[in-house]
Simulated assay, not measured.
Amino acid sequence: MKKYICAIIFMAIQLVSAQEDTKTNWSGSRPDGHAPISIMGDHTHGKGEFMFSYRYMYMNMEDLNRGSENVAFSNALRPNDVYMVTPTSMPMQMHMLGMMYAPTDKITLMAMVNYLLQEMDHLTAMNGTFTTESSGFGDTKIAALYKFFNNKRQQLHGQIGISIPTDSIDEEDVTPASSPSEVILPYPMQIGSGTWDTEIAITYLKQWSEFSFGAQARTTLRIGENGNEYRLGNKYSFNTWTAFMANNWLSFSGRIELGAVDKINGINPDLNPMMIITADTANSGMTYANAGLGFNLYAFKGSLKDLRLGFEAAMPLFQNMNGIQLRNKETITLGLQYAL
Rank of each mutant, 00 (worst) to 15 (best):
G98W: 00
N296V: 07
N114C: 04
R308L: 00
I267A: 14
D173A: 00
L205T: 06
N283C: 06
E119H: 04
Q154L: 03
F149T: 03
V174G: 02
N290W: 09
N226S: 03
A215L: 08
G224M: 09
A299G: 12
T220F: 04
L116I: 12
F50H: 11
Y338T: 07
D121G: 04
N290C: 12
D63S: 12
N80R: 15
A282R: 14
I223T: 14
G161I: 00
E257W: 09
M61C: 09
M40P: 14
S168I: 02
E119N: 14
Y58I: 03
M189P: 00
S29G: 13
S38K: 11
I107V: 08
L293E: 08
G158L: 00
L340T: 15
E62M: 08
Y204R: 07
I169M: 00
F50G: 03
F318C: 12
T333H: 07
E199P: 01
Y101R: 03
I267K: 11
A246R: 09
P87Q: 06
A260R: 07
L250K: 06
G41C: 11
G285K: 00
T219E: 12
R55E: 13
Q319L: 12
P180R: 11
T104S: 06
S89G: 11
A246I: 13
F148S: 05
T331D: 10
L109A: 08
S135D: 02
I164A: 00
D173H: 04
K147N: 11
Y115I: 00
T333P: 01
N226W: 00
N283H: 09
A260P: 06
E49M: 07
A279L: 00
D81S: 14
I202E: 12
Y83M: 12
Q19F: 12
E257M: 08
N25I: 14
M57D: 10
Q159P: 07
M189T: 01
F311D: 12
Y54M: 10
T108D: 07
G67L: 10
G128H: 08
K263E: 10
T281W: 06
S181K: 11
Q325R: 10
Y204F: 15
S74D: 13
A215S: 12
M274H: 12
N328I: 01
Q190N: 00
L340S: 12
N75S: 15
A291N: 13
Y288W: 15
M189N: 02
H34S: 15
A282Q: 15
D170K: 01
Y101H: 13
K147M: 06
D262L: 04
L185A: 02
G46T: 07
I5P: 09
N290I: 03
Q337A: 15
N290F: 07
Q14H: 15
